[in-house]
Design a protein around this nucleic acid. Structure first.
Lengths: 218, 218
DNA sequence: TAGATTGTTAATCGATTAACAATC
DNA sequence: TAGATTGTTAATCGATTAACAATC
């Protein structure tokens, strides 16, 4: 994998291209142009070309790209070929939902154990994955050399759980709790911010309404 | 609510400020400076000031902002005071998890009904919310003037469900399915892109590792 | 060939950061 | 008062879009 700096927006678009391409592939389409991808996903065609260039895939003038080549390039670029073992912390309803996601294994991530502090949950299996007590988290993370964890505990417990993960040697936390985590500089945190997304949605709707009201007055 | 264009990054940061401020408030702190907020959340202090200026809140030189004023301003700005009735479509594990989220009601959204095409789920209540058959979606959305829907169906069913929502008059879709939705121009879609977030996480980790390997060679 | 498509270089746009005057 | 903090205007930075030469 290259060290080169990739713009984060590019990184966020690549999985979208990927899923679109897989659907094209399943539909039997063999070739695709940057314009076709862009039109479908609402991205400028030049932008699509730049994004795809990062993956190293090359197209042919007049012909476009081979769909399966592109799929392969994006997979390799995102390192989705190599599956990493990860822990999931917080086996509540959201955590359980994520445990059931088949798709993650195609995106380079395999959940190998879940942890919860509720004794009622411990010992059971959810979607085939054992739920272990929080007390075992730190030691097990170390022994299994776990680098990535998914954090789906309530906001109040998030910092405590994150600290335990860091002590266990975890280097990257995918954070679903709506709180910023205090971790050392060399630990990576990527948060799913539902409230941010909801704020964007409701503002887009408000603007849409103002526009349509302006266009079609009484 | 003002029509003024607000940068989307600002809109995404405001909920983070809000949650941080609520925690300060609960901890009994009365005043806060832009620098304090910025330090805690990793945002430049000038950025924080600009963001807060959009909400109309004013601080006082040397003193800073009153925490409860700021909370109030952000709430009003994001329209989190007025609760909107929304539908949730897809009562699978993710949908069920979201049904249980207490926090949405504080963010201006109340889920009033869930829909699923699985007859086994229909008729039951989840977290106190009735699960209704998909056949009733369109008519009920129209009669209840539902403007927003949360989409938590599998990828294969997402477009079909989205189309039903549009026919029912829904104007905004919060999409948790990993597919782009084809909807009319005047319908707003905001997607939660888990795979994009995961791609960012794993790349950040890879870069972090390269950096620390470069700093501490064998 | 002619024209569609690629990939790259330049221009634009918008967000972030820096600089600074105002003020409590 | 002196100094911390605000809010605004200017500079920088980075991503997106436009322009265009290369090529199959």
């Amino acid at each position: 994998m290259s060290t080169a700096a990739v713009p984060e927006p590019t990184l966020r678009r690549l999985p979208c291209y990927y899923h679109y391409l897989v659907r094209l592939h399943d539909a039997g389409q063999e070739r695709v142009s940057a314009s076709q991808i862009g039109d479908q996903l609402g991205v400028h065609h030049t932008q699509v070309r730049k994004d795809l260039a990062y993956t190293g895939s090359q197209g042919r003038p007049k012909v476009g790209h081979r769909v399966d080549d592109l799929i392969q390039s994006i997979e390799t670029f995102l390192n989705w070929n190599n599956c990493t073992d990860v822990f999931l912390v917080g086996a509540g309803s959201l955590g359980t939902a994520l445990l059931g996601y088949e798709g993650f294994s195609k995106a380079g991530v395999r959940i190998v154990a879940a942890f919860d502090r509720d004794p009622k949950k411990v010992g059971h299996k959810l979607h085939g994955i054992a739920v272990l007590p929080m007390e075992k988290l730190e030691d097990l993370a170390q022994r299994m050399h776990i680098a990535i964890a998914i954090l789906t505990v309530p906001a109040e417990s998030a910092q405590e759980a994150a600290s335990a993960l860091v002590r266990g040697g975890v280097r990257a936390i995918w954070n679903f709790a709506p709180v910023p985590l205090a971790v050392p500089d060399d630990v990576v945190v990527e948060s799913i911010t539902l409230y941010a997304s909801l704020a964007v949605l409701s503002r887009k709707l408000a603007i849409q309404r103002l526009n349509s009201a302006a266009l079609a007055p009484a």
